[in-house]
Write a protein that binds this DNA or RNA. Structure first.
Ligand SMILES: [Mn+2]
Ligand SMILES: [Mn+2]
Ligand SMILES: [Mn+2]
Ligand SMILES: [Mn+2]
Lengths: 222, 222
DNA sequence: TAAAATGTTATGGCTGCCCTTATTATTCCA
DNA sequence: TGGAATAATAAGGGCAGCCATAACATTTTA
């Protein structure tokens, strides 16, 4: 139980893989894009990770986490989501900003600190974006939410979670109140992969399909 | 106001200089020792810092922070000491451990987070070891405590602060209750640079001179 | 099935930050 | 004042993690 520790770069690769892929292998190009590096560099790094037994790489097919790699990734995710809770609930920082701030802190947090933080927060089950927080053993429940574009027009739904989107999308969603717990209705779906029109608190809000993909919802009862 | 950001290594060099020297230049060897690197490497790095205008290096004399370098150092110290408060008071971690944990977090903390943390903590004036926390503008009061070895036998004193010592010294002091606020008396001073014998809560405690140098105290009234 | 897209490998380069060994310069102290 | 201690410089190296460019392999797609 030496509790080996990994570099920030390695942790980010593993977290990125875990966030992106729930089973199926991830293409090198996708990884490069998400981490904002060149595909050649991503390829190099994946080889290093492979040598360390953290990922499995099938050339031309993609990259998958090994059990060991997933363990590290889940641990990083736990740290990040706990910090997100702290930053939002106790430091009152912006919902749209806590992901990025926590993404720095996650690499500077020892196990003892992580567990003390979890206790302080009361062992929260989800982060402010509705994503599950793994427990100390790496276990977490998989959400039953459905991507917003899969919902029929007219249905009432409640936002369950927001997958981590690139760039300024979180700020965009926050401005429009598209956050976990928010109830809304799909008013209209434009043809030809067009935007959704939502009704939120009596206001109409247009949302592009690409962004809507990041929003998971559950159908309202009744 | 681009708020340039520095590497962890640079921040540690600057913080080390600020913690060690209150005016007089610091020898390269001292820096190397504190950062656990070779003097040759320290020399190299000091040259890089010099080129960046963060320190002034007079060959064979020593290294001093520039105004710019001191600004960065004070900012790092602020972040660290705020985190120390949080870790001790809210996460209930060990007094002897919070310095090291905070030393990781300090490099991963954006200005917005720092200020929100300061507010959350109620703008504490000192860290758990009694050292002052600079304010947002980098200002702080210099303590009036005296190193323990400078006190006469028989005097009652109160521990004001503990300078950051190397290695396991903090744990050693915690076990013996030598922490800020603790009242104690110098019972005896052994000759030949020998240890001090202290009376703490009715118990006698021996403390080596080297360690006692890290303990700053104030004389008791009355 | 051929062209386009994507992935892989090779080569060479870069920065940051650390190392060792050896030589030379300066300062301190007895 | 001369030797010991400390500091500086030079030369060569290593590792992590990125970059670009070019050649080649595979897969996708139209
Ligand atoms: Mn991160
Ligand atoms: Mn989140
Ligand atoms: Mn540090
Ligand atoms: Mn402290």
């Amino acid at each position: 139980m030496t509790e080996k520790t990994f570099t920030e770069s390695i942790e980010m690769y593993l977290k990125t893989l875990a966030e992106a892929g729930l089973g199926e292998p991830i293409a090198i190009g996708k990884i490069a894009e998400k981490l904002n590096i060149t595909p050649v560099s991503a390829n190099e790094m994946v080889q290093r990770l492979s040598r360390q037994g953290l990922v499995r790489h099938t050339p031309y097919k993609g990259v998958e986490l090994t059990k060991k790699g997933r363990g590290v990734a889940v641990d990083v995710i736990r740290r990040q989501r706990l910090w997100e809770c702290f930053l939002l609930e106790h430091l009152n920082l912006e919902w749209s900003q806590v992901y990025d701030f926590a993404c720095s802190l996650e690499h500077a947090t020892a196990p003892i600190v992580t567990e003390a933080l979890a206790k302080f927060l009361g062992f929260p089950k989800t982060c402010p974006h509705g994503n599950p927080i793994p427990d100390e053993n790496g276990n977490f429940e998989i959400l039953d939410g459905i991507p917003l574009p899969a919902i029929e027009v007219g249905k009432n739904v409640i936002v369950q979670s927001i997958k981590h989107p690139p760039g300024d999308v979180l700020a965009y969603l926050q401005e429009r109140n598209i956050m976990p717990g928010q109830q809304l209705q799909i008013a209209e779906v434009a043809p030809m992969e067009g935007p959704l029109t939502l009704e939120i608190n009596g206001r109409e809000v247009a949302l592009g399909l690409n962004i809507a993909e990041f929003v998971n919802v559950t159908l309202c009862e009744e």
